[in-house]
Amino acid sequence: MNYIIELILKLGKVDRRWIFLMIALVVLIPLLYPISLPIRATATTQQVYDAVEKLPHGSKVLLSCEYSPSTKPEIHPMVVSFLRHCFRNKHKIYITCLWPDGQFMAEEALEEVGKEYDLKYGEDYVLLGFRPGNEAVVKGIVSDLRKLYTIDSKGTKVTEIPMMEGINKFEDFDFLFSGSAGSPGSIDWVQYAADPTGIPMSTGTTSIQVNEVMPYVQSGQVQGILAGMPGAAEYEALIGVKGIGTSGMDAQSVAHLVIVLFIVLGNIGFFIERSREKKHRGY
């Protein structure tokens, strides 16, 4: 018993760089040798899927990309899966970006998914692109989209794009999905677009944002949420096309187990040291 206690105390004093190395290894090994842990959709992911399924074919869906390469591993698989789901159901996709990098992320996602479907730019999808102004852009899309977007990301006038016919403001869309890694993002869409107009929206966010957005999901202001990489993996499982979200889940699960183990050991070490200190002081 004493040996175990001493070992735990020794572990507590180990150089943090060994812990970094261990985390790197537990992430790397499952990526090289996948163990294929089962993935089951949580209720909030299922809600997003059902919301898209409920839309009649040919619905006008607004997709907003608010993420950058730094958060690509979490949001990109969601956006790719969402595009797949929408194109499979023959929905029309309109893409806006509240983050400048979002435009390039959207281009990458479209390139990836575009190969799988016979799509035509301007008829099946349009990339309206980035506009600076944060929540003012959302407000602008709600009141008069044409004033904000006179040209798309390629510089083509929106009046010359066939699928832009009849699209003048946010209420002309049937659904909104926000792939958001922070602010401006999903919360701005809830506050300035979805709530005032009643147009249904769903979101996919980084893990760190989930707690912030979850109250809107609980209250019904947002229809479901794809929560971080697990949310992306669950959505991939629902649409039946595996991607980076699924392949990363083994590493994610193993890394979590190791981190939990470190937390438990750290706490045990802390309590042992505290009780020894108390004894030493003669309490």
């Binding site: 985390i23 790197a24 992430v27 790397l28 990526l31 090289l32 730094s70 958060t71 690509k72 591993p73 979490e74 980084t206 893990s207 760190i208 944002q209 989930v210 707690n211 929560a227 971080g228 990489m229 697990p230 980076i244 392949s247 990363g248 590493a251 994610q252 890394a255 979590h256 981190i259």
Partner: peptide, 22 residues
């Protein structure tokens, strides 16, 4: 819960970089 999600987010980003490195 916020801390748990923050850890999950950081690990996801690490996975993303490792996937590219591989």
């Amino acid at each position: 819960a916020s801390f748990g999600f923050a850890v999950m987010g950081r690990i996801s980003l690490l996975i993303g970089r490792f996937v590219d490195l591989l």
